[in-house]
Amino acid sequence: MSLTQADMAFARELFENIPDLTTRRMFGGMGIYCGSQIFALQLSDGRVMLKAAKGPFADRMKALGGEEWTYTRKNGAAASMPYWTLPDAYLDDPEEACALAREAMAALG
C-alpha cells in the first residue's frame, strides 16, 4: 500500500505551522521534517507517528493513548521503532498536533 496524495496533504496541513516543514516519500510512506530533523512519519496506511525514543516523551505519548510502532522481523521476533501514533484527538486539531510535535523535537535534542 502507498500513501495517497490526500493522505500526504492531510499530514502537511496538520503540521503546517512547524517552521521549515519538508516531507520526503520513503518506503511507501512519508518522512516529515523540521529542517533536517525528522520528527514524524506517515506510514503507508496513513497513520501519523511522532518520533519518541525511550524516556519521558515516549511515556507521555503512551499516556495520551499513542501506540508504539511494532512489527515482526523475518525470523519471527517482535521489534519496535521509536515512533508512536498520534492520538486521535490530535488528528483533528492542528494547533495541538504542532504543540505535541514541538515536544517531540525538544525531546530529540
Score class of each variant (00 low, 15 high):
S2D: 07
A78T: 14
C34N: 13
L91V: 03
A6M: 06
I18C: 03
M105H: 05
D88Y: 04
L91R: 12
R47M: 05
G35R: 00
F15T: 02
L108E: 07
A78R: 15
P94F: 10
Y33I: 04
L41F: 07
L100T: 04
L3A: 05
G28Q: 12
E67F: 00
K62W: 07
K74T: 03
L41N: 08
T85E: 01
A99R: 14
I18L: 08
A104Q: 07
D88F: 03
F10N: 11
I18T: 03
M61V: 10
A107W: 00
K51V: 06
A40G: 15
R102G: 07
D20N: 14
S80Y: 06
M1I: 09
G76E: 08
T4C: 00
A107M: 01
A58N: 04
V48D: 00
S80H: 13
A101N: 14
R12W: 05
M61Y: 12
F15M: 09
A99T: 07
D45A: 08
E67G: 03
T85K: 00
A58G: 03
T72Q: 06
E13W: 10
L43R: 11
L21N: 04
K62T: 14
W84E: 01
E13I: 09
T85L: 00
I18N: 00
G55T: 05
R102D: 11
M61K: 13
A77W: 09
S44G: 04
F10L: 12
A40L: 12
A6T: 13
E13P: 06
A77N: 13
A6N: 11
M105T: 04
C34K: 13
T70A: 01
G55M: 06
A104P: 07
L21K: 10
E16N: 14
G28F: 13
G76T: 07
D92G: 12
A63H: 08
S44W: 02
G109E: 06
Q37Y: 09
L41D: 01
G29F: 04
K62V: 13
L50S: 02
T70R: 03
A58D: 02
D59N: 05
M26Q: 13
K51L: 08
L50A: 01
Y83L: 10
T4F: 01
I18R: 03
G109R: 11
M105N: 09
E68T: 02
A40D: 09
T4P: 00
M30T: 11
G29M: 05
L64Y: 05
A9L: 12
C34I: 01
L64E: 09
G55P: 09
Q42V: 12
F15D: 03
A99F: 08
M26R: 06
L64I: 05
